[in-house]
């Protein structure tokens, strides 16, 4: 960058932070209103939103499978949301995402102590059980898979999305 920023230490620090962000997307805080932003941000594209947590046994098994699915299906926007209670653990969350091959997907972490309100915005019937996967079609139709998803079902759904395109 040739523009003279050198004297502005604060800005240098900020741009360094941005550079780091570009290299490895940080976890984004999931707060009030984030759910609607996610829906709007991906409108018109098939989206898979996966809710999970670092203390959930079945999630640990499923996450790497989802990493492979994301790699095999660039046509599907994969979004993950760590939905454990706050205090949530960004370090452990990022580490598990990295190991599962999900470093470059859009990854959120619950960041509101009032989790009931966050969950209510997503689905008033959801009581917090994880893993949970929401498949959102181009038309906005939501299919919710409670518990671990069968990869075969995800393959079938993504094939349907491609066929409709």
């Amino acid at each position: 960058m040739r523009v003279r920023f050198a004297g502005l230490a604060g800005l240098v620090a900020l741009t360094a932070s941005v550079a780091a962000l570009a290299a490895s997307p940080a976890l984004k805080p999931f707060e009030r209103g984030t759910w609607q932003s996610v829906l709007k941000g991906h409108a018109g594209r098939p989206v898979l939103v996966h809710f999970w947590g670092v203390t959930c046994g079945p999630c640990k098994v499923e996450l790497p499978l989802l990493g492979q699915f994301a790699k095999d299906h660039p046509e599907v926007d994969v979004v993950t949301v760590s939905a454990d209670l706050v205090p949530n653990l960004p370090g452990a969350t990022q580490s598990m995402l990295d190991k599962a091959g999900l470093s470059s997907t859009e990854n959120f972490i619950f960041n509101d102590g009032f989790v009931e309100r966050l969950r209510f915005e997503i689905d008033p019937a959801w009581q917090g059980d994880i893993p949970r996967t929401m498949l959102i079609s181009r038309e906005g139709t939501v299919t919710t898979i409670e518990g671990s998803a069968e990869m075969g079902d995800l393959e079938k759904w993504s094939a349907q999305q491609l066929a409709k395109h």
């Binding site: 932070s17 941005v18 805080p29 707060e31 960004p90 972490i109 960041n111 102590g113």
Partner: peptide, 15 residues
């Protein structure tokens, strides 16, 4: 990004 990080640390985000 700075705001997001600040929010991650803000006490209001805690249970």
């Amino acid at each position: 990004q700075g705001t997001a990080l600040a929010q991650m640390r803000a006490p209001s985000a805690s249970e």
